[in-house]
Design a protein around this nucleic acid. Structure first.
Length: 115
DNA sequence: CGATTGACGTACG
DNA sequence: TCGTACGCCAATC
């Protein structure tokens, strides 16, 4: 494809789309799943380019390791990310996900068990 | 081509 | 337990 970006970006989008409804994941978990344990920041970079991607990438389900909406500023409206999460049943308090461990979805774990 | 930045994470005090 | 410092890796200036 002429729109061929780094395969890393495409791979990130794919994993993010696999995040179930009402669940969230972390940049480090995705990076580690892709083999880029030290590339957590690169996942964030991919998210920055995920805007307008088709199919849409649920970037609002991707948070940092503490469950904080670190990228809420990149959604245009700061509350947009929180609104999307609450719409899916995820409780957000003080820009932080309540019960983050309960809604946390680890690709390394879920995808590994199925394989 | 070199320096700075950044949707992160871990280590240290 | 909380706050600060440093490290990674790629993109941008």
């Amino acid at each position: 494809m002429s729109t061929k970006q780094s395969d890393f970006f495409n791979d990130v989008y794919e994993v993010v789309r696999l995040i179930p409804y009402g669940r969230v994941s972390s940049y480090g978990a995705i990076a580690r799943y892709l083999g880029a344990t030290r590339g957590a920041r690169m996942v964030g970079y991919a998210m920055n380019a995920a805007h307008g991607q088709i199919p849409a990438v649920p970037a609002h389900r991707v948070l940092n390791r503490i469950g904080m909406l670190s990228g809420k500023h990149h959604f245009g409206d700061e509350l947009a990310m929180q609104q999307l999460l609450e719409m899916e049943g995820v409780v957000v308090k003080n820009d932080q996900v309540v019960g983050f461990e309960k809604v946390f979805w680890d690709p390394n774990l879920e995808l590994n068990l199925e394989k």
